[in-house]
Nucleic acid binder design. Sequence first.
DNA 1: ATATTTAAATAGAATAATTACGATTTTATA
DNA 2: TATAAAATCGTAATTATTCTATTTAAATAT
Lengths: 137, 137
Amino acid sequence: MEKLKKTGMKQTPQRLAIMHHLEGNKCHPSAEDIYKSISPKFPSMSFATVYNTLENLKDHGLIKELTIESGKKRFDPDTSDHHHLICVKCKKIVDLPQEIQLQQKALTTAGVIKGFRILSTQINIYGLCPECTKTSS
Amino acid sequence: MEKLKKTGMKQTPQRLAIMHHLEGNKCHPSAEDIYKSISPKFPSMSFATVYNTLENLKDHGLIKELTIESGKKRFDPDTSDHHHLICVKCKKIVDLPQEIQLQQKALTTAGVIKGFRILSTQINIYGLCPECTKTSS
DNA sequence: ATATTTAAATAGAATAATTACGATTTTATA
DNA sequence: TATAAAATCGTAATTATTCTATTTAAATAT
């Protein structure tokens, strides 16, 4: 948990609470989710603090920002190389097994063809989760 | 162009203008981009009409909505199966060659493991475009 | 332990993108 | 040309996020 120290970030109660909430969290919460779940303990905490903290954690590589639904940022404490399944009905987001990847050849091709310096890749697979598949006739 | 008829959507001047603007457009424009480029010809056109139209076109499968930067929707008239390279510096979005795809095996695995019914896949590759690679020391 | 420095937190306003809504107008069709 | 359904307009409301000025607290040096 005290990865904060390594990054040189100050250890504040709000930050610790936010990190603690994220740690091991598989729900890919939004800023609002985080705010709601933490503000009872920190009634004075501002929304701006949540955004600031998330931005800082992201800049220091402790979390990832997901771009899954336009209109809302989501955050993932799992910084390992993995991707996501999104249920278009219930909006649930679950991790994909790590073996789901782009063909390496393809990526290289992209690099060569476009002259792009690739920094990261995000794969979103949209569909219906098992539960929603059942309930949608 | 008159794909509209097939969908049963009414042919209004605003819609035709929006469709015409999108046709063959490789810029992946946002609602605002579209509004700005069309409003000179339709000074009375409302922003709501742009959103309504884009939503309708999407529902009828004539365009795709891209989820690339959180906070802003972008639209793509190319509904074929393809993905995108995004320059994190200048925000340019370019199409990836179609051969960039997920391993089929991987997708099947996802379907089996998670019981998901897969509807669509979006791959975003983030990086620096050739120009921005040069100018960032 | 205390003072100093500096980064972080706060509140609130501002902005941006999108959605909602009721009144009016237009389109397609009979 | 009358009619009904759908689209448009203008505005208000909402949602997510960012900004700014000020206060507060953490880390560090004394």
